[in-house]
């Protein structure tokens, strides 16, 4: 049973240059009690999707179509008040830089207490006890509740942001690049904390990231986005070890792996399309080594032959052969 189902979601930004189709037909599900990685490169729409679910889209953004069914209820079209009831209590957000969720002029404890009293209806004494509990849960010394955010290191701030997000026992936590700004040792510790708490509390987490090794480390499922669309989705192991979409295959080749030595990293030539004037057909076609005539004219739908592993490619049926070819660096070198 999924906690959240995103269906054919389309989000546009109105800009001086025209309409940018930042998310153009995204479909994926978040099962209850699972960690789902939303992965892709800059501009693929992953953060826009995350912000849409949280109800904090930019002013010039608009949900043009689609549904976001959360616990049986469509979030698209919810008014601000309804969203305010939902936020923190049902859906909480952890931003990339904890400085964005922590106000620099208030003590960290005061900010956690504020969420508890205003959003959660806690009285002050209970809020104080809960704040101590939350700090202990994320591995921070409760004495530091009286500190200001600047007195925290980057890793501690990110832990405080996690404590804040978990304050009212949400069902879903959305974390946007929560460890990108952290050093690798701190990153590992914060990821372990997120994973541990997610299991203990049985919540769902959407982890937005550009890093497929972070996905491999903590996510049960992964959704790969490219140029505003979902191109592949499934269990993490299946998607990373047996990718079905050429973009995922290319991403894997470009990613350094400390366990494999001597492998040449292979870039994907070219760059993503302009989302103001997206090309007809498959958006990855201009960079794809396996492109057919058909790909240039018709956009491939998410192939649902295998409901556990979806891929939006006309050649999904040939995936295992393409995978073999994709492992050769020469496949990706355009003439």
């Amino acid at each position: 049973m999924s906690l959240l189902a995103i269906q054919d979601l389309e989000i546009t930004y109105r800009t001086q240059r025209g309409i940018c189709r930042a998310v153009d037909g995204a479909t994926f599900e978040v099962p209850a009690g699972a960690v789902v990685g939303l992965v892709g490169e800059s501009g693929c729409g992953k953060t826009t999707v995350a912000r849409a679910i949280t109800g904090v889209l930019a002013r010039n953004a608009e949900i043009a179509a689609g549904r976001m069914i959360f616990a049986g209820r469509d979030l698209v079209g919810l008014d601000r008040r309804a969203y305010n009831d939902l936020r923190w209590r049902d859906i909480a957000f952890i931003p990339q830089s904890a400085m964005n969720s922590l106000d620099p002029v208030y003590r960290v404890g005061t900010q956690i207490a504020e969420v508890l009293t205003i959003r959660g209806g806690f009285d002050r004494a209970r809020a104080g006890r809960r704040a101590v509990e939350l700090f202990e849960m994320v591995g921070l010394n409760p004495q530091r509740l009286s500190d200001y955010p600047h007195q925290f290191s980057g890793g501690m701030r990110q832990r405080a942001a996690i404590a804040l997000a978990l304050a009212l026992n949400p069902k879903l936590v959305i974390a946007d690049e929560p460890v990108t700004a952290l050093d690798v040792i701190v990153q590992r510790q914060v990821l372990d904390t997120i994973r541990d708490l997610q299991r203990r509390l049985g919540i769902s987490v959407i982890l937005v990231t550009h890093d497929i090794s972070v996905v491999a480390y903590v996510c049960d499922y992964v959704v790969v986005m490219y140029a505003g669309q979902v191109v592949e989705a499934g269990a993490t192991d299946a998607v990373l070890s047996r990718p079905r979409h050429p973009y995922t295959m290319g991403l894997y080749n470009a990613f350094p792996d400390l366990q494999r030595s001597g492998d040449l990293l292979v870039p994907i030539e070219g760059s993503p399309p302009d989302l103001f004037e997206p090309p007809e057909g498959c958006r990855f076609a201009p960079r794809c080594p396996f492109v057919l005539d058909r790909c240039q004219t018709a956009s491939p739908p998410l192939d649902r032959t295998d409901t556990r592993h979806l891929s939006a490619c006309w050649r999904t049926a040939e995936a295992s052969e393409l995978r073999n070819r994709a492992r050769e660096a020469s496949t990706w070198l355009h003439s």
Binding site: I185, S213, V215, A216, Y217, T236, D257, L258, Q259
Partner: peptide
């Protein structure tokens, strides 16, 4: 070295 994640699921989750 131990803290660096790798892009496949087969990796150590032991404490550092």
């Amino acid at each position: 070295v131990k803290a660096v994640p790798v892009p496949h699921v087969d990796q150590s989750h032991d404490p550092l």
